[in-house]
Amino acid sequence: MRQPNILFDGLPLPFADGQTIMEAATAAGIFIPHLCHHPDFKPQGSCKLCTVKANGRHVSACTMPAKDGMEVENNSPDLNDKRRTMLQMLFVEGNHFCPSCEKSGNCMLQALAYELEMLTPHFPHFYPDRPVDASHPQVLLDFNRCILCELCVRASRDVDDKNVFALSGRGIRKHLIVNAESGRLADTSFSLGDKAAHVCPVGVIIEKGRGFALPIGRRRYDIQPIGMELERAARCRGSGEAI
C-alpha cells in the first residue's frame, strides 16, 4: 500500500496514520514554529504559533491530524507575519527583559523571535504586576515571563503525578498558580527532580544558584538558530553522522 502523503509547502511529505501535521513535519526534519507543543506531552494547541493553512483553512499543526492529500502551507510571508504578531503579543503581555533574564539564549520565545525576525514588541506594553515566588529552596518562579503554555502543568500532572501547577483567571488576567493554600511553591510537593522543573520554554521556572553558568553568547540558540537544530539533526540522521 502506498504511504499517505501531505503536500507540505509544495513538497510531498509522508506520514504515519494518526500523526499530526507537526509530527509529520518534525519526523521529516522540517521546523514549524511552536511554543506549547512538546513531543513528550499531549498536544495543547493554545499558543497558535504553529498555525498553518491546511486545505485553505487556518489550523494548529500540533493538533490537526494529517490527512492524505492535504495541502499544507507553512513557511509563507503571511503566516510568518501572523506568527510574528503573536510573538509580539506574548512579549507585551508579560515583562520580558532579556538582558537580565537567566534564560536568555536558551529561551524558545526569544529564539523564535530571532527566527521570525521580530525586532520590536510593537504593541503598547501591559507591564503587568506579577510578583516572583522565591519561597522554594531550589527553584525560583518568575511569573513575569510566563507565556501560559501549560507545559509545566502537563508535566506535573501527567509525568510527576503531582499537579503542582494550574491556571486560574481568564482572558488577559489568566495566570499560573501553584497547588498550595498559601500560594507559595515552597508549600507544594514540587522538587527539582520533577519533570515540571525542566520543561519551561521560557525563564519562569529557574533553578536557584546556577546563575549565568554558561555565559551569554555561548548558549543554545546563540550557537544555532532554533529552526536549524531540527533540520541539521534530520540531515545527520539521513547521512548516518553523529549529531
Partner: peptide, 18 residues
C-alpha cells in the same frame, strides 16, 4: 531608529514599573 533594548521595551529602568 530605536537603538537597543531600553528604547525598544523600556529595558532595565522599566523594571520599576510595578
Amino acid at each position: 531608529v530605536a537603538l537597543g533594548a531600553c528604547a525598544i521595551n523600556g529595558g532595565l529602568p522599566a523594571q520599576r514599573n510595578h
